[in-house]
């Protein structure tokens, strides 16, 4: 009774995932000649995981290989990124990680088996700008209202975790300005947004992800007062940046996640991957799948990501090291 259905699930899955590639032999003996696994160091269902799963089918077509997305969660990304860093540098074990998960554990915990130099980025998958949000009914109409209140007294500000990018960024802001802000850590973006909407905290400082935050902004449940990035975001041109408000010298506060290989991976393999990535990141299907405001408007290649990653690493090391 049960068993006939299981092969059905499995084969349906195989058909959809591999596009029937199982029946065909690999075209050449060159890369890729076997299945590629992409390690995702965060749980299934999180935004990094979801966007990797949107990207994977396209990469399969481009590379003509089976791609397996594996979740290796734990230790704020330290477990999965550690597995990735120890794997053979042959292009068959990749990682899809956020900059925070790549950079922070070695800074906060010391030796976790990898550091920022263990990643050779292939290309940007998505970005989520950090935003300062308040509920629709909040008396804070503009960022000026918020910072005036913070100067005068104490404002409770929800953050998605003490060692999250927004959390570290707020700590630096408080240290450098002496503003009366009390950061309150919640369980990720979802928990923070719940607290903002229920009024448990007066404002939230979160990465504007497509899963939880952006829909609330669009529906008008919350209002964005400011963004942390130095340049205004394309989709929110009128929202001021913290820099334009006079808060400079803050650490790099922009959440992004990318595909990476080990540094010793052969250049031609990385080149092949980067090409495939470029084609995918500019295809309508992937861009739509990733969601509005997530996919970069033009492909951001490995070298550029590496520069951003190193900037983030040195900023966080300065502020937390």
């Amino acid at each position: 009774m049960r068993f006939p259905t299981i092969p059905a699930v499995a084969s349906a899955g195989l058909l959809l995932v591999t596009g029937c590639s199982l029946t065909e032999a690999p075209a050449s003996s060159e890369y890729p000649s076997q299945s590629i696994s992409i390690i995702v160091p965060v749980p299934a269902g999180s935004s990094t995981d979801l966007s990797t799963r949107v990207l994977a089918p396209c990469l399969e077509q481009e590379l003509d290989a089976t791609i397996v997305v594996e979740n290796r969660e734990g230790g704020s990304g330290a477990v999965g990124n550690g597995v990735f860093a120890r794997a053979k540098a042959d292009g068959y074990t990749l990682v899809s990680t956020t900059a925070a998960n790549a950079v922070l554990p070695p800074i906060l915990e010391g030796d976790v088996g990898y550091d920022v130099d263990s990643f050779r980025p292939v290309g940007m998958i998505g970005t989520a700008p950090i935003v300062l949000v308040v509920p629709a009914a909040s008396p804070f109409k503009t960022a000026k209202d918020f910072f005036a209140a913070a100067k005068a007294g104490t404002v409770k500000l929800g953050i998605p975790g003490a060692t999250s990018v927004p959390g570290i960024s707020v700590d630096t802001l408080i240290d450098s300005t002496g503003l009366g802000i009390t950061p309150v850590p919640f369980d990720g973006n979802g928990g923070t947004m719940t607290a903002v909407l229920s009024g448990e905290v007066q404002a939230g400082y979160v990465s504007g992800d497509a899963a939880v935050v952006l829909p609330r902004v669009e529906s008008g449940d919350v209002r964005v007062l400011a963004t942390a990035v130095t340049e205004p975001i394309e989709t929110m041109p009128d929202v001021p940046t913290l820099k334009s408000l006079g808060y400079t010298d803050l650490p790099y506060a922009d959440s992004f996640w990318f595909l990476a290989t080990q540094p010793k991976t052969p250049d031609d393999v990385v080149g092949r991957l980067e090409n495939a990535m470029k084609n995918c990141m500019t295809s309508d299907k992937v861009v739509t799948g990733l969601g509005k405001g997530v996919a970069p408007s033009s492909f951001i290649g490995g070298d550029q990501v590496a520069t951003l990653l190193r900037q983030a690493a040195s900023d966080y090391a300065k502020n937390r090291g």
């Binding site: 299981i6 092969p7 699930v9 499995a10 899955g13 195989l14 696994s37 397996v68 594996e70």
Partner: peptide, 12 residues
């Protein structure tokens, strides 16, 4: 176990 976990459920 191989049939159920590796072949059907495709666990890593």
């Amino acid at each position: 176990i191989v049939v159920v976990f590796i072949e059907l459920l495709q666990v890593p």
